[in-house]
Design a binder for these strands. Structure first.
Lengths: 124, 124
DNA sequence: ATCCTACAATGGACATTGTCCAAGTCAAGT
DNA sequence: ACTTGACTTGGACAATGTCCATTGTAGGAT
């Protein structure tokens, strides 16, 4: 555990953050000015491999990193401002995919993204 | 409707294709060599605005364009080779998000991505 | 037929996001 | 002190996407 990795871990340690790699880098630089982009990418990649952090694709432009990897959850995204909330729908979407719709795949995971408009944007 | 736009529409006209913008461009060039990347991007953007084509984020590296916009469906993606199938799960995921999990959002849409391994990759 | 005008297409520059690599740094063990 | 190995660094590069000034074109007006 080096200073660089500790800083990246700290940045992701807030609750319910969903940052892009560049945002992580920006915040890391604030704490440790000489940290390089490559190190941030490397560290994020390792955290993902270790299962400590999830990559989510709610944003079509850049990967986001979700530190809340240990409790399954899905995402609710504001179509206007991009705000992201963790949500816990009832039911099990995996059970909703009948064998006839699996085309021989071994299905192991499901990712649900709800889209809408957040109260803030609706008010504005 | 210009020759360029017709070509882009033709490329997307196959069934169950999920191409990246660059793949669309490559196929368009095969039919109309002088078409430019910018035109392909512009035309795809217009088709998305018109609701004729959907952007899907199954791939974290590039947007994919799904011409099957008129019948709701979700996606099943092979984690190894990236193959994509359209699927139609039973149930209504929107109904599975209780009001207490909506945080005041006006939820209008839901996108479900199943991930697994396709028969081809499982065999290899 | 010619000209005008509006719009589309072009190509290239640029921006963003992500990956890779050679060299430098640092700490631990010998 | 030397060696070794892992980590970091900075920069080059690649992939994807956007922007803009210029060029081309189609249709209507004269």
């Amino acid at each position: 555990m080096t200073a660089q990795r500790r800083v990246v871990a700290e940045v992701l340690d807030g609750d319910h953050v969903h940052l892009t790699a560049d945002e992580v880098h920006a915040r890391a630089v604030a704490k440790l000015p000489e940290i390089s982009r490559a190190t941030v990418y490397n560290t994020l990649g390792e955290l993902v491999s270790l299962g400590e952090v999830l990559e989510v694709a709610t944003d079509k432009r850049a990967k986001r990193y979700d530190p809340n990897a240990h409790r399954p959850h899905h995402h609710l995204v504001c179509a206007q401002c991009g705000a992201i909330r963790d949500v816990h729908p009832t039911g099990n979407p995996l059970a909703d995919l009948p064998a006839s719709e699996r085309f021989g795949f071994t299905v192991s995971d499901v990712e649900v993204t709800y889209r809408g408009v957040c109260p803030n944007c609706a008010a504005g």
